[in-house]
């Protein structure tokens, strides 16, 4: 079973690399249009076909990966880490500290996230505009939920009583907290939370990119020189309007599927014993 867990973890890493690493090879600008190749399918312009101005969709895929890759992973890791903190606080029985953290968490959790995210996006100087500040903001806002759930799991263990019971068996405090509490019990919860946050950041980026276009603004999540996966999906959804853009829709959903598979695999690896 341990081998199975490590295999799943390795798979998760491979899947993550498949959509993060290509971002490092993205061109800084899209090429000029070639209107003769408008909406060319992958058979005419491999590997993914062309957009409605004849430009390769591969550029969109790579640029989009550059936009979401690292920020999504960092946000997921941050939420997982904060979830661990929440679970440990419930175990350690911090009393006032736990109470104060819970109160702050309730307030953070109650803030309208999109407004906070939008304000953060607008505050970032144009030249520094990117997804990372937004992803970190989203992670901080999502953390109270993760901390809550982790605290509930730790609470079901018995909290401080659980620690004391294991201490009576001769285990050290640090081993109990890191291995028994975090490693064995909190792991599935915090990894799942982290994986979900990672996916949410990708979806958030797509939503924000589209909303920026709809509101006739500069992009909130990346420099205006490049395009995100939102452009693929904005083109792709127009199949409902009889535009032959199936290949764009397929590519966009396929990329999101890669992120989803990463999340699912990581969660499965965390659950496996």
């Amino acid at each position: 079973m341990t081998r199975g867990r490590w295999l799943l973890a390795l798979l998760a890493l491979v899947f993550a690399a498949s959509w993060v690493v290509p971002g490092f090879f993205a061109e800084p600008h899209l090429p000029d249009p070639d209107l003769m190749k408008r909406l060319a399918p992958p058979s005419e312009m491999p590997p993914f076909g062309a957009d409605d101005r004849g430009r390769p969709l591969l550029n969109y895929a790579l640029q989009g990966a550059q936009v979401v890759g690292i920020p999504a992973l960092v946000a997921g890791l941050l939420v997982a880490l904060l979830g661990v903190v929440g679970g440990l606080l419930a175990t350690v029985g911090g009393g006032r500290v736990e109470g104060a953290v819970a109160a702050v968490g309730e307030l953070l959790g109650a803030l309208p996230r999109m407004v906070v995210v939008l304000v953060v996006a607008l505050l970032v100087p144009r030249d520094a505009r990117g997804l990372m500040p937004i992803a970190l903001t989203w992670a901080i806002l999502a953390a109270p939920g993760a901390m809550d759930e982790a605290a509930a799991v730790a609470g079901r263990l018995g909290g401080a009583a659980f620690v004391e019971a294991l201490r009576a068996h001769g285990f050290s405090r640090s081993r109990i907290l890191l291995y028994h509490v975090v490693g064995l019990n909190l792991r599935p919860v915090v990894v799942r939370q982290g994986a979900e946050t990672m996916m949410q950041v990708v979806f958030l980026e797509i939503a924000l990119s589209y909303l920026a276009i709809a509101e006739r603004q500069g992009s909130f999540t990346h420099s205006d020189d490049i395009h995100s996966w939102a452009s693929l999906l904005d083109l792709g959804y127009k199949v409902v309007l009889d535009l032959p853009s199936w290949h764009a829709l397929g590519l966009g959903l396929g990329l999101i599927a890669m992120v989803a598979v990463t999340a699912v695999t990581a969660s499965a690896a965390a659950r496996a014993r």
Binding site: A230, V240, L253, A257, A260
Partner: peptide
């Protein structure tokens, strides 16, 4: 999960167009 891959904005756009 497969259906959930579709971002909200895409589903909403299709609905809005319709």
């Amino acid at each position: 999960s497969a259906v959930g891959l579709i971002p909200t904005v895409v589903m909403s756009l299709a609905a809005a167009a319709a």
